[in-house]
Design a protein around this nucleic acid. Structure first.
Lengths: 206, 206
DNA sequence: CAAAAAACCGACCGGCCGGTTTTAAATAAT
DNA sequence: ATTATTTAAAACCGGCCGGTCGGTTTTTTG
């Protein structure tokens, strides 16, 4: 029954990580104590310590899990479209307050930014997440160029632009609801991306 | 000499706030203690307490000061251009590693995001900063429309887009240098904005 | 069923932090 | 010169947190 025991351990670890994600999202990673997470998972501090021997270890695992989760959902969503432009615009689910991943996710993302400023581990987590996202977008851009619906643009740089633009819209949408409605976010994200693709072909500015 | 004393007090407060900004930027607002700031300003904890009776008070004053400072610089810069498109692109100084305000500023901005998630005060500070920025951009967009160099677009929504796009680019540029060079940021920020303005006129998509 | 191992608990320690109080030094007023 | 007042340093307090550790319960194994 060794395999079974190992599997159970993994299940419990996953459960604790999920509890940690919710607790961190609710209170902010800098205000969360090990006891908070232990309580939320139905453990004592000592019990939690059995699965994660340090706060750093648990937190890193939690953030990694979060980015993995968002990536998987993004990938499923983008793959559900066939038109390249639809693929580029497939991230509208991230502007939905009702979505639990959204509510939990944004505070985690902002925490990750702060952590990334000073910790290599989190910088790397962020970097790899961006890279995976850019990969998805780049494929869609290349597809659009090959199908002839997009002009001949630099796929990599364009993918990074789209990703960055979404990031900016999302930050405003989440942190300044007053000035940035969901309708604005969805409509103008679309316009920004279509404008970018169209306008970036020729460099006939001015 | 009462006025003089009051003036001296203000000078010292301003000096402490400046020290606080640097200390917070260096260590992150959640890791900074009152003693850290006191030391950096050449005070003891008690001395610092004479000027700011609580950590919250000092921190709020510091963040307010930082956003004011960035706003003033942005305003000076945008006003140095007369062409509307040049004005929209006048934020390139924020992609300059050599600039001290830039190095100190980004960590503060990310901290402010996290604080804004759970604190009304910081949400308000962020909101007002965004609003002032949008005001500047909106004026430039309106000017462009009136001069006939921009198509007839919604000035407010467009200004919010430009502001958000810059925010997204800046986040990537600062946190993921590896994948987002300064050259990329400047060149594609320009392309994104010009594409947005051109492409947003007619809604002739697909 | 008994022995061994794993899982878990909760008290505790060392250290840190924000804020207060006490003490001392510096400056101004008399 | 002496006293009063402002200013700052230092000591201190209460509270919190991460991690440790001895012990207890539960599960697995022989």
């Amino acid at each position: 029954m060794e395999g079974n025991a190992a599997a159970r351990e993994l299940v419990k670890r996953a459960f604790i990580i999920d509890c940690a994600l919710h607790t961190i999202s609710e209170n902010g990673s800098f205000n969360v104590t090990m006891e908070d997470i232990a309580k939320s998972a139905g453990f004592s501090k000592g019990g939690l310590n059995h699965y994660f021997s340090s706060k750093d270890e648990l937190f890193e695992a939690a953030f990694q899990e979060y980015f993995d989760r968002i990536f998987v959902r993004s990938q499923e969503r983008i793959n559900s479209f066939s038109d390249p432009m639809d693929k580029l615009l497939s991230f509208d689910w991230l502007f939905n307050w009702e979505d639990p991943d959204v509510n939990v996710g944004y505070p985690l993302l902002f925490d990750c930014h702060v952590l990334a400023v000073r910790h290599d581990t989190y910088r790397k987590i962020f970097h790899e997440w961006v890279e995976r996202w850019v990969d998805m977008l780049r494929s869609a851009v290349i597809e659009g160029i090959e199908k002839g619906v997009f002009p001949k643009i630099d796929p990599d740089a364009t993918a990074r632009c789209i990703s960055a633009i979404y990031h900016g819209f999302a930050t405003r949408w989440y942190l300044d609801k007053e000035g940035h409605s969901t309708a604005w976010a969805i409509e103008y994200y679309r316009k920004a991306i279509t404008g970018l693709i169209k306008g970036m072909g020729g460099d006939d500015i001015i």
